[in-house]
Computed example of a mutant assay.
Amino acid sequence: MRRETLNGGRVVVVGGGVIGTSIAFHLGERGYRDITVLERGLPGEGTTADATGGIRQQFSTRVNIELARRSLPFWRHFEERTGAPMDFRQHGYLFLISDPDTLDVFERNAELQRSLGVDVQVLDPQQAADVHPGVRTDDLLGATYSAEDGSASPADAVAGYLRGAAGRGVEVRRNTEFLGLVTDAEGAVRAVRTSAGTLDAELVVLAAGPQVRDVGRLCGVDIPVDPHPRQAFATAPLPELHGGLPLAVDMASGAYVHPEAAGTAIIGGNDRDAPSSDRAAVDWSRVESLAAALTHRFPRLEGLEVTRGWAGLREMTADDHAIVGPVDEVPGLWVAAGFSGHGFMQSPAVGEALAEWWLTGAPPLDLSALRLSRFADQSLELETAVF
């Protein structure tokens, strides 16, 4: 992995969502003082605003597990670190499995997760029903469950990162478009062009979420990240729902139910097959099949009422892993994007890792699996714990 440390010049973060603001916060927290965040609109109003806030460690690959596990302490101590409040509810994640092959995969995943320090259990159907009362078990083979997993507000996360960053001198330029790079004779970054003028820069990191491919083209680089619309729906209160229940995913359908404290829930997960698009719109035709999938697995949700729906864009890669690291062809240009729905939950560890990498020459964990060049090399490892 390439060694690259900062020499005191300006770091420009392109994108003011949860990844970009985390990077700025963590670099500023370590004493670096020349940091500018460019946001074409307002921080946190893009993909982050539409995220549902899940935080889990149950992944199938080492790098995804480690990023999530390393982020957990930050979520627990968010206010101490940033000075802003955060309601991180550790209600747990429960994956419900009715297919033998899927169960085999999730059992192997759990072994890897435990080897990396994650407290995860493989449950039989009755144990799954004990964790989430009312689950249909007659066609269930098993489940995996981690009580440490949970959820929080992505909007609060951005607000906290910004508050902590502002106290350390980070500059945020709102309503400012990134227009491209200024490079020297060797092709290395020297400045950025913006709608408000040119800024000198030693290092530029593209954290532009679903728009990162377009932003990369402005730099002469193809970043293989495609936007995919995903949607979620809110329900009216039901007596069977309460905030102590885990976020539960029926892996057969991909449908999930995310109970909230008020007895309502966020539901979704049956639209992973939606084609790539840069436009997100609620597809109300999916509500009927979603409700059917949920009431099959959770019969007590029969009669659930959807009160509203919303849609956002997920920044997806071919292997459901992010791209984090340098662009080898353009010295000084980096990418932190393509998180495939996992950016919010992994943002603390990503910000920490990049800050350490730039200041010491190496990240605190092996990020080689997230290198941009893996797509050209065709050395992809698929993340299987997705829905």
Rank of each mutant, 00 (worst) to 15 (best):
L116Y: 09
E240N: 01
L38N: 06
A128W: 00
R3H: 14
R40M: 14
L199V: 06
L382R: 15
I55S: 00
H296F: 12
W284T: 11
S347M: 13
L294C: 09
P299W: 01
A261M: 13
S379V: 08
G209D: 02
T235M: 02
G44S: 05
L206H: 04
V192K: 11
G351I: 13
R190L: 03
P237E: 04
A201I: 13
P275N: 06
G263E: 11
V327N: 08
F25E: 02
E186L: 12
L203C: 15
S195K: 04
P364Q: 05
Q231V: 01
V335L: 13
P239W: 02
V215K: 06
G180L: 14
V257W: 12
A191C: 06
D328W: 02
V170G: 02
F78L: 07
L359Y: 08
S195Q: 08
V324C: 10
T264Y: 07
A232S: 14
R70L: 11
G268M: 05
D273G: 09
V204P: 03
D200V: 11
A291M: 11
I35S: 02
N175A: 14
E240P: 00
L372C: 09
S195G: 15
P364A: 02
W310V: 04
V306K: 10
R314F: 11
G338I: 03
S368H: 00
V12N: 09
V335N: 09
A292I: 03
S373D: 15
P246Y: 12
I267D: 07
G361E: 04
T384H: 12
H26C: 05
P363E: 05
L301T: 06
D250R: 04
D156C: 01
L333T: 05
G197N: 03
G325A: 08
D320V: 04
Q126D: 13
I65C: 08
F233R: 07
D273C: 01
S379P: 00
A196M: 08
D34A: 02
L112H: 05
